[in-house]
Design a binder for these strands. Sequence first.
DNA 1: ATGCACCCTATAGTCACTATAGGGTCAAGG
DNA 2: CCTTGACCCTATAGTGACTATAGGGTGCAT
Lengths: 133, 133
Amino acid sequence: MDSRLTIGELAKETGTKVVTVRYYEQAGLLPVPPRTAANYRAYGADHLHRLRFIRRCRDLGFTLDQVRDLLRMSSQEDQPCAEVNRISGEHLTEIERKVADLTRLADELRRINARCQGSGTVADCRIIEALSP
Amino acid sequence: MDSRLTIGELAKETGTKVVTVRYYEQAGLLPVPPRTAANYRAYGADHLHRLRFIRRCRDLGFTLDQVRDLLRMSSQEDQPCAEVNRISGEHLTEIERKVADLTRLADELRRINARCQGSGTVADCRIIEALSP
DNA sequence: ATGCACCCTATAGTCACTATAGGGTCAAGG
DNA sequence: CCTTGACCCTATAGTGACTATAGGGTGCAT
């Protein structure tokens, strides 16, 4: 039984694009796989797990640097996980800050947009006016 | 009375960095200013207004492409402002979508983080576990 | 043997800046 | 007059996380 995957199969399996998989390899996130006689990358189950982990982290908004750290830590099972906690906590704080910023921004845009019905000319436009400080 | 500003003064006046002002010029957002004998850029009140407009739009999260469009429209006072309305409305929709995405994401991260006190080892870490799909 | 989908490398482009190198200019103080 | 320091100039490369393009090789079915 041949459990090796081509890059295309690995990509499809994880919802990643082929070029992105190669990018992760070159970025040092995914180990260099063995090659077939035709120089095709041949991936195993370990690559699949690792790539799924990477994608999950990316979906959650972690940067590749953070993912790198999390990967390193997850392979050192006897180390304390305080550092894992710190990274995840800081990331949450950052996201909460972004939500607050964007919410404030959306409020302001709603206020600006409400002042114009889009039926007049630019000269009367309250949006342009509101954008001109 | 000399109303001309150096690039440094313009930058300070608008809360922009000097390099960013030059970047806006090269990106075609800020008109090329006249130069002094020493080849220094010499800005006038029109540049100041325009740069303030750009910064305000950027603060509201518009892309430079959108700002370019808004600038073009704001100079055609007799044109209908429906297009202005459309750009602003689409931008608001996009931001609202981002807020929803990030809120969902923050919820998930909070749930994940709550499962780990950071006192054990990585082997027991519920964060790593939650990140491994 | 021919088409087609897939694989390979290397390079450049995206966005909105930021950083660096290597210079020129100007006003104040010694 | 000379130097110091803050400012100005250009040109080029780097950031993050990909994406796109060019120019080729491989594998399988018809």
